[in-house]
């Protein structure tokens, strides 16, 4: 093997030595970093710059060069409101409906998901029968594609779906779940919790397992009740993991799009239209394609996500610093 590699290395060595002589030792680092920097620049940095540029242009042309500069007009359109609490008073009412839907969705989804994930992690951390099986069962939905999740639940909840067939058989009779705004929203939250809870359960389970056993043993010797042990030991020691889970879930919640779009299409009306769907529809699905408005909205979402990410970084750093 070495006999093959050595001559090959010698072929590379010659130009590298020449480069080193030309650039010097310190600058040579840039040569090694260049491929990654180029890829990062092309696929991460450049799109951000383009997004900012599009946000300041109008019209429906695709090419930036063909688009008129409109300054901050797109941002002004989005924020032109009598009261942001009342979407009907806003010029771009669909944006604010999507903002409020997302806010409610994230609040409920994250709350329920973190709560249920904690409960599940605590149960799965106990010495119960078939623990490995149950861990797999709770994690399984995470492996499913969002569209598959949406189609499974649509199949269950549609007018002639499995749930209504059961309700018809059991007596109370079926209900048109996906045509009623409140029910469609409720089921969207439920499905999202069902699909993602396993991931957070796994993180919390790892956090629980990192808590030293002897602390619980000491509590037992001091005759502390299980509830007191949970409040005084588990929760405080799990708090750093909980914070990470909370921030991750918040970021993921704000980005919700694919599974709910495939599940309800954002309806009925705009009841389950979230901010990412609004951006998609304005920029790519509607006519005319309002790339500028979509780019401006996406920058506003990015601002919120940056804040959430900074919180996560701060939490992580605090954990590392102890």
């Amino acid at each position: 093997m070495l006999a093959i590699i050595s001559p090959l290395m010698r072929i590379v060595e010659i130009p590298m030595l020449a480069l080193q002589r030309l650039l010097g030792m310190n600058r040579l680092a840039w040569v090694f970093l260049a491929p990654n920097l180029i890829l990062f620049g092309l696929f991460a940095f450049l799109p951000v710059i383009l997004n900012v540029a599009y946000a300041t242009t109008g019209g429906s042309n695709v090419l930036l060069a063909d688009r008129p500069d409109v300054g901050l007009r797109n941002f002004a359109t989005l924020t032109d409101c009598g009261s942001v609490l009342d979407p009907n008073s806003c010029r771009e009412d669909k944006f604010w409906r999507a903002v409020w839907n997302t806010t409610w969705f994230v609040t409920l989804q994250v709350g329920f998901m973190v709560g249920f994930a904690l409960l599940t992690a605590i149960i799965l951390n106990r010495d119960i029968r078939a623990r490995g099986f149950f861990r797999a069962v709770f994690f399984f939905p995470v492996l499913l594609s969002p569209v598959v999740v949406a189609l499974i639940w649509k199949w269950i909840l549609q007018r002639e779906g499995v749930l209504n067939a059961f309700l018809d058989w059991a007596g109370p009779g079926g209900f048109n779940w996906l045509v009623d705004a409140n029910w469609a929203f409720t089921w969207s939250v439920f499905i999202s919790v069902w699909a993602h809870m396993g991931f957070y359960t796994l993180i919390l389970l790892a956090g629980l397992q990192a808590i030293p056993r002897d602390v619980y043993e000491a509590a037992t010797m001091d005759r502390a009740s299980p509830w007191r042990a949970f409040r005084k030991i588990t929760l405080p020691l799990l708090a750093p993991t909980m914070l990470v889970v909370l921030v991750l879930a918040l970021i993921k919640g704000v980005q919700t799009f694919d599974e709910i779009y495939a599940f309800t299409g954002g309806g009925p009306g705009t009841a389950t239209t979230f901010i990412i769907q609004y951006i998609y529809e304005e920029g790519f699905a509607g006519a005319p394609r309002l790339f500028g408005l979509a780019a401006a909205a996406s920058l506003m979402v990015a601002f919120v996500l940056v804040i959430l990410t900074l919180i996560q970084l701060w939490v992580n750093r605090r954990n590392v610093d102890g």
């Binding site: 045509v179 299409g265 954002g266 769907q277 529809e281």
Partner: peptide, 12 residues
Amino acid sequence: ARDVWAGQGGAT
């Protein structure tokens, strides 16, 4: 049939 128009969002 309410499902047709109320069962979707956007311009789908």
